[in-house]
């Protein structure tokens, strides 16, 4: 290899054609309000965890839709499941339910509120 003093830069773009959308499809099946977000950011503005960290419930939904799921588990660790996002959402998205189902889909059992499962 010759060092020319410069390199070939790889694309910084997300290639949606090649993105792995398994999780997005799974979530769409499991939570019917998933995918109805209009991105107004009220959830994030009111998020108690988002006040102190970069946690952004609005963005998490987009990242799932874009297949960017590598760091999702760590991001979700920041959520305290207080449910304020759900109270605020103008689209009426069941965000707490969405997070719970997401924990399960990502196999994050220590955060899975198993106790409410299956009663209804």
């Amino acid at each position: 290899m010759i060092d020319f003093g410069y390199g070939i830069t790889r694309s910084n773009r997300l290639n949606l054609d090649e993105a792995d959308l398994t999780l997005a499809r799974k979530m769409a099946r499991r939570e019917k309000s998933f995918g109805t977000c209009i991105g107004c950011g009220t959830c994030t503005a009111g998020c108690t965890a988002g006040h102190f960290t970069a946690y952004n419930p609005r963005k998490i939904q987009l990242m799932i839709l874009n297949g960017q799921t590598e760091n999702l588990k760590e991001d979700l660790e920041k959520c305290m499941l207080c449910g304020r996002c759900q109270m605020l959402c103008p689209r009426g998205i069941s965000l707490r339910s969405l997070w719970s189902k997401l924990y399960r889909a990502l196999d994050a059992p220590h955060k899975t509120p198993s106790v409410t499962r299956d009663i209804f």
Binding site: G39, C40, T44, A45, G46, G50, H51, K59
Partner: peptide, 11 residues
């Protein structure tokens, strides 16, 4: 006012 600037992704 408490708001997220959604384009900047900043609360």
């Amino acid at each position: 006012l408490k708001v997220e600037d959604t384009l900047a992704g900043q609360t």
